[in-house]
Design a protein around this nucleic acid. Sequence first.
DNA 1: TTGTACGCGTTATCAA
DNA 2: TTGATAACGCGTACAA
Lengths: 352, 352
Amino acid sequence: MPDQRPVDRPTLEAVAARAGVSRATASRVVNGGDGVRAHLVEKVQVAIRDLGYVPNPAARTLVTRRTGAVAVIIPEPEIRIFSDPFFSRQVRGISRELTANDTQLVLLLVEDRGDYDRIERYLAGGHVDGALAFSLHTDDPLPAIVRRIGMPTVYGGRPGWTSGPGEPGEPDGEVAYVDADNRAGAREAVRYLLTRGRERIAHIAGPLDQTSAADRLSGYRDVLPQADPELVAEGDFTVAGGARAMAELLDRRPGIDAVFAANDLMATGALRVLRERGRTVPDDVAVVGFDDAELVAETADPPLTTVRQDIEGMGHMMAGLLLETLGSGGRGGRPAPGPVITSTELVRRVSA
Amino acid sequence: MPDQRPVDRPTLEAVAARAGVSRATASRVVNGGDGVRAHLVEKVQVAIRDLGYVPNPAARTLVTRRTGAVAVIIPEPEIRIFSDPFFSRQVRGISRELTANDTQLVLLLVEDRGDYDRIERYLAGGHVDGALAFSLHTDDPLPAIVRRIGMPTVYGGRPGWTSGPGEPGEPDGEVAYVDADNRAGAREAVRYLLTRGRERIAHIAGPLDQTSAADRLSGYRDVLPQADPELVAEGDFTVAGGARAMAELLDRRPGIDAVFAANDLMATGALRVLRERGRTVPDDVAVVGFDDAELVAETADPPLTTVRQDIEGMGHMMAGLLLETLGSGGRGGRPAPGPVITSTELVRRVSA
DNA sequence: TTGTACGCGTTATCAA
DNA sequence: TTGATAACGCGTACAA
């Protein structure tokens, strides 16, 4: 039985033959056509169209040592708890930027720590030129991996081992990450509540082993350094966690007249508990969230006043940063650009 | 200046040399080690570990003509409107199955129709072995593309050009897709409302150019063939659309005592309008949704009775189906397995 | 400006 | 069972 291959694709060789040039010239045309006479460029291009030629990426990668692909690493547990819209939107921003630069997005979801072996093999295998990684906890094994194999990486959200901007400690000049200015955003939220005449302002924090949660708490404390510690409860970024924290706070300090929640989901949980306990919002208690999450902040009852961060924009910048690093010549290229901090914006709705 | 390459990775050649065998033998060991004497296998494996050898995927792809990667194609507009959790969860299911089979997931987000040129070039370029595609509208250009270039593809959701199961028309034996049994799920929802004594049951449909919406409407009509046409309003799968549709329905037929919405988001919108108009749920009007969407159905007020579909499972099956097709020998392999329809389940909560 | 020829790292064929 | 060796498709010194 003859080898029944599926419609053998035309090679560069075939293009060259049809155009009556050498393969080298054909290759030059495919890659921009610099230094090739115009009429030859023309000829080759015609041949390419006629044959429907598309370069073989494997062959190209083999010689250039570049894959034109980037890994996006997302820890599974997060995508569930943190709730999806956040990642979806950030990935959207990443995708746009990568597409614009003809780079592919390889999605790596990490289920549990055992998966990191697989991730390491994959990254070490040279399938991708760089990586984008998300929301690392302090003890995440990924940073060690990418450092060991020298994979250019940009983080989404400040990694736990770095010191926050404005915090004392070693500066994080060398690690590339993109994050919203969580601390300043939190300050703005709390200050806003003060200007509205609120006097007993509580905070529902996120899980404090995530820097976003820690930084928002820091912002709260920046404005209210003397605040009663009992006015802070730790949640887990979920609706249920927010409800639990709100209940705790009301039990401890019934006189609360405002709550700043570290994200919109928890704010929603707080709203429910407040309603159940007969408090009106915003009259009795004002509520401010964080994120301006799609389908959550606007449709909450009442609609949430919240701190918006430009999630898509952050994704965009992450990809941009990585491509920049890669562009300058791969692995050992220039040192990664430092962190990028994007600003936040208070969105006033009804809840505060 | 000498070529300052970044820590040249060990090649198979190096492994062979270190183990004192030929490259061919080393290769055999890397790929399972069949037909190699045990003590040589051992030697090679040691060499692999010592050197930290990882196969070069580009070189491998070049000769095997297999990439070990699969494209997941998601239309951008959908991911926004249909709301994220749906895709996130399905992608999670896909990812699990692919990972288990050592296959990579390349994410292709489609912004607008102009992007299909890029998609076609990408698929034709041989970057991936197969594709998974979502929620096609009737006029989507993707099917023509994948057919033209012979890319094995499995669809998520029944494609528009096929006839639904149970519908008359050409059977869709040849096209591979995975879908929930939308029609049967809708029937169950409506029948349930009947058993609860409801007599004027309205339906808020999704955009009818999507088969999921059309099939759910069909299910509604299966049970209520004589229903007043004014009891059906078309929404767009968003909260706002559901609210609009609910308002319309109440204007047209104030006596409605139940609503079956084609998804949970629209059901949420309906709940809001019902509350605004002084109707209690479920006493005055019972409401049933569809999807059992995370963070939506359970946290709705009141919690939604809804039709659950196993979204992750569907993703899992999509990937499984595709891998099966690929496994049997690539492009021209065996004809794609027919559609897979997963069952749904009514989840009773408070709203009906 | 164009062409020749070599190398990228693997797998697969064929002898031994 | 093992080992040479020929592809795989492309980029790029180097020579012309």
